[in-house]
Amino acid sequence: MFDEEIKKPKGHEVGMTIDTMSVEELHERINLLEVEIERLKATIEARGATRKAADAAFKF
């Protein structure tokens, strides 16, 4: 019934305000970011493997 409902962000944005988050919410953010870091590392690894395969294919 409020004119403006407070909406929690669904993801983490670098530099976002964290002062009002509970310890539990901060732990959730850390977990979210750790999962994202692992996803990014896996993508980097996969791209490196693809590049190595391409380099090997074009060596004469």
Rank of each mutant, 00 (worst) to 15 (best):
E4G: 02
A57D: 04
P9L: 14
A49Y: 02
S22E: 04
D3F: 02
S22M: 01
K52N: 14
I6W: 07
E4T: 01
E5T: 00
T43M: 14
R39C: 11
D3W: 05
E28P: 02
T50F: 08
I6R: 08
E45F: 04
A56D: 03
F58K: 04
L40S: 13
M16C: 03
A57M: 00
F2M: 13
G48A: 13
A42T: 00
K59L: 15
M16W: 07
E5M: 10
H12W: 13
K8D: 14
T50I: 08
E13V: 13
K59A: 10
V23F: 01
K7R: 12
A56F: 07
E38C: 08
V23T: 01
E28M: 04
V14I: 09
A53V: 03
T17P: 07
E34G: 07
V23H: 02
A54Y: 13
K59S: 11
V35N: 06
P9W: 09
H12S: 08
K41Y: 14
N31R: 06
T20H: 15
T20V: 10
R47M: 07
K10R: 09
M1P: 01
T43G: 14
E13A: 09
I18D: 04
L26F: 03
I37Q: 11
T17Q: 14
I30V: 03
K10T: 10
V14T: 08
A54G: 03
D55Y: 01
I37K: 13
K10D: 15
M21G: 00
G48Y: 08
V35C: 02
T20E: 14
T20I: 05
A56M: 03
G15A: 00
T17M: 14
E25C: 00
L32E: 11
H27V: 10
G15W: 01
F58M: 12
K7S: 05
A56R: 05
I37N: 15
T43P: 03
E34R: 03
G11T: 11
A53W: 01
D55G: 04
A56S: 02
F2G: 14
H12C: 04
E34I: 06
M16A: 05
A46S: 04
I18T: 07
K8Y: 09
H12N: 01
R51Q: 15
S22T: 06
E4Y: 14
